[in-house]
Write a protein that binds this DNA or RNA. Structure first.
Lengths: 205, 205
DNA sequence: TCGTTTTTTGAACAGTGTGTTGTATAATTC
DNA sequence: GAATTATACAACACACTGTTCAAAAAACGA
């Protein structure tokens, strides 16, 4: 698998990387919607025609970049959760998501704000919802009985909550620490999610 | 108050209303970002120059329109909550927000999706968070002691959850009913929010 | 290293939307 | 009905898009 992917032309790698970096830096400076393809190619020192040889439009560049980033994150998270599943709900909350937000704080501060992109916001939330459902909800689902709420709805509720928390945190210049934020949000979530996934009580006679 | 506002030229009212309606119908058809000012003025049968006499840009038109809508909603909600505060948390959840979403389902189905507007999403969430904090959280705050979580963070968490719920609901063509959705979300919320707002336990000796 | 393949460049193009300027026309108000 | 005010229409310079093409440059593989 890793051997087949060796055949990417250096120029292609270089061009795409330059465009990615240009996009990132411009997002921080001007906000996503305000950026033009001209801006990006100028900043990257690449002919505008070249852009269209690699990406369909601005969104395409953004989403291809994000896909790479999130594939790497997903791998890490998978591994992280692998040895957490045995102990049920850990007492120490997993702060790797808040840590990731902190690592790209300038980027997310824009992209999760009014100056970001609706498509980005909605996609990240859907992605998060799916991850949460697979890695958090599914493992703690009771083996039988109908839950009070549809599990995929719960995934969306938590994802919406998470993203709101990221926004709130970034607006306050990341106070308090990622660890505390993660603990706060998890504590709040768990007290809802356990009930939500518990089997329905039979109707009163 | 209501008498002073009587002096608005009919032509102005008519033009603005036409532009508002044009925007709304075009959002449903093409998504927000895809719309141009030309599109709007064409649909409204108004000269393009006239648009700039009333609004700065597309966002300005959207937000002025939304402001009017939400002012009306806020008035209704204020009144609704006025006679709910005595009984603490009602056993019947307030579904007026889901009902409002249903009334403008076509509009929100676009505007809360990838084809909507980031500024709209973030503003609506902030607006919701503020409303929730004032009308839901503040009344049930214990009179003394520090809560486990900052109340404004809790407002954002719930607002993010609400909007995620609207999105989930609209994607599923509003199944189940608004009443059930409201009950689900409230039940999920309350089991977190009560803990979040309870006074902190003193540290272990 | 050399010849081949592939990518990048730069110029040019038509097309579309923007935001602003005038002046003329139409509607509304008092 | 006269004065005021909003709208219409045409025109403008400007910016960005998405595409084509031939020439130049870079990377590849043997």
């Amino acid at each position: 698998m890793a051997e087949v992917a060796k055949k990417v032309d250096r120029r292609i790698q270089r061009t795409r990387e330059l465009l990615r970096q240009a996009l990132m830096s411009l997002i921080v400076e001007r906000g996503y919607e305000a950026i033009t393809i001209q801006d990006i190619t100028e900043r990257a020192n690449v002919a505008r025609t070249t852009f269209y040889l690699h990406f369909r439009d601005k969104d395409d560049l953004l989403f291809q970049t994000m896909r790479d980033v999130y594939e790497e994150i997903a791998a890490r998270v998978d591994e992280h959760y692998a040895h957490l599943l045995q102990q049920g709900i850990p007492d120490q909350a997993d702060a790797s998501d808040f840590q990731h937000i902190a690592d790209f704080a300038e980027f997310y501060k824009i992209m999760l704000s009014e100056r970001g992109s609706a498509a980005f916001l909605v996609r990240v939330r859907s992605y998060l919802a799916e991850m949460i459902q697979k890695q958090v909800i599914a493992p703690i689902m009771p083996p039988s009985g109908t839950p009070n709420l549809p599990p995929d709805l719960v995934g969306y509720l938590i994802a919406g909550m998470q993203i709101a928390a990221y926004y709130w945190w970034l607006q306050r210049d990341m106070q308090p620490s990622a660890q505390i934020m993660a603990q706060w949000v998890q504590d709040y979530c768990v007290r809802g999610v356990l009930w939500a996934l518990a089997p329905q009580e039979p109707p009163k006679p």
